[in-house]
Design a protein around this nucleic acid. Sequence first.
DNA 1: GTGTTGTACATAGGC
DNA 2: TGTACAACAC
Length: 715
Amino acid sequence: MSLHLEHLNPEQLAAVTLGDEHALILAGAGSGKTRVLTTRIAWLVKGGRVSPAGILAVTFTNKAAREMLTRVSAMLPVNPRGMWIGTFHGLANRMLRAHHRDAGLPQAFQILDSQDQLAALKRLLKGLNVDEDRFPPREVQYFVNNRKEEGVRAGEVPLTDETTRRFVELYAAYDEQCQREGVVDFPELLLRAFELLKRNELLREHYAQRFRHVLVDEFQDTNRLQYRWLKLLASSGARMFCVGDDDQSIYTFRGANVGNMADFERDFRVKHVIRLEQNYRSHGNILDAANALIANNRNRLGKNLWTAAGKGEPLRVFEGESDADEARWLVEEVQALAREGTRLSQIGVLYRSNAQSRVVEHALFSQGIAYRVYGGLRFFERKEIKDALAYLRLVATPEDDNSFLRVVNLPSRKIGARTIEELQDAARQQGVSLFKAVPGNSKAAAFTRLIEELKAETANLPLPEVVRHVVERSGLLEHYKTEREGADRIENLEELVNAAAAFGEEAREVEPGEPTDPLTGFLAHAALEAGEHQAGEGHEALQLMTVHSAKGLEFDAVFITGLEEGLFPHEQSVTERDGLEEERRLAYVAITRARQRLYLSHAQTRMLHGQTRYNIPSRFLEEIPEALMKWLTPRFSKKKDFSWSGRSPEPLPFAKPRAREVGGFRIGQNVHHPKFGSGVIIDAEGQGTDARVQVNFGNQGVKWLAVAVAKLQAA
DNA sequence: GTGTTGTACATAGGC
DNA sequence: TGTACAACAC
């Protein structure tokens, strides 16, 4: 039960034992950030500096919140009752349930995930006869969410032009619809919680007095609204302890605002910025590479990681002729590592985008190597689970039109688009929910009766039995039994019953005002905690994932694949503001995942969207000092004509004939241009003085150049 | 009202 | 290349 303060380095100790003041902790990768955060909480509580109820600690993921809770519990003599530890959304939900009346919400309000939100918007746009070409649902969603994250309601958006005016109308209509149906989307959860404190002085005072210490994890990932909410919570003198790393900010594309770090320093007149720069994870060469790379970014608070461990081995770099070649090499290296005793689960294969996993998977599969791919559908996002949840939601909230539409004809009740439309018209006219608008003698009435019966039948059952009963009586189980390949779905539906049981068993402390209805709690849990991506965690398997999902993880050996211009950095990023810097931070995150060994690779050709692409090596490879790397293939191979030779597939017999060689240049050849720099020829056409070649210059773009005019040189 | 073909589209993904 | 959803035919 000791805090083991003696094991902390001076900076960590200073952070943990900081006195009565605000603090910004710049915590580099692998610098013991979580340890500092949890030890500080324990130190505050154990020393009697604050009661557990005075602690509010917030993270971004449920996983991080769980880990924090576990570690804090281990350091304290009793279960830390009364602490608020959770995600922003989880804590907002908790607050809104407790004060749903003040927040203007029904007690059992349902939470829309992004999919649900999009479905709700599509329905709205259809009902309003909006031209979906001019106002695509996705863009409306984007607009709404961005405004909410700025804390701006529909009535407050400046109407700069006609299009904006239209978007704002839709925003307002969407919010009305949500209100009517008693549902709340993710950004709304945060905005409501913010507005609740902003408008209700009594409540604000209550919480601001209660929480004496507010601790924030991954502070660089907070958006503007989250920061403003934190400021309200700290409005009565609470001490803020914000931990973050600007170099690991990789989520600006979804609203994260690194600027919050600088704002925080200023707004709270932070006296102490503590830098945790000693890294306990990686060998020296790996850290040197990371430091050198990130030094190319201009917008930084500044930080340099160091380690007491040795330099370790050089980074191994491989150039593949193709993506398949790269994958073959990777598999061989993995096998070699395994022979040397590295466990598969301690090897991470990282890539920029999910599409890249396929080739690697193929190679792994053919060699019989166990692997696990992260990403994709999570448990509570699966179709059959969402169907079951829709029934459960209707039992709890019949006004939930989203759920109504989802399952009114599932299993089939012979209710088609026509009937639905009529129903929607009627509901709109009467200003009521679809459920209420159902005429007594219609086909749909059988459905509403079913829901009402379910409600009555399950009223006094324990939660898992409620779920079991609804899954069976709704006809879903039967429906999926008759569906071919429905075995997995049946299994998942059964697993849902188990999930309900597990949820019920988790002894969660109930504070006054907390929802007492277990079903409501479970439905919120399902929305907020999407569950595991894939079963089979803990099995010995190679770990495949995007760089984004690797954040926060570490491996003995790491492969970063597809280090090519256009892929990593991604071509989309060049059009984004500071996009390239974010890509570089992403590469920084990837590198710093490795403990002992780091492998970097790229391929000369790659199949993307069914087409062969010729990419030049990523600039990030050039930003890493040569001395740290060991090239397994000749650096930036000068091999020419690779697309037409050797093992490479012949062009299809009916493919459009392409000029293989024009004006002394060949497809696949590396070239240099005085203005655009180095590139690779990806296409050619014409003859003699008309000869033109298409060159991929990476960040400079893809260009057609006349051979006679452009000063192209073989590189 | 349901099954089938056809076309558009393709970063990253937490809650 | 593979998927997702919309417009089509039964």
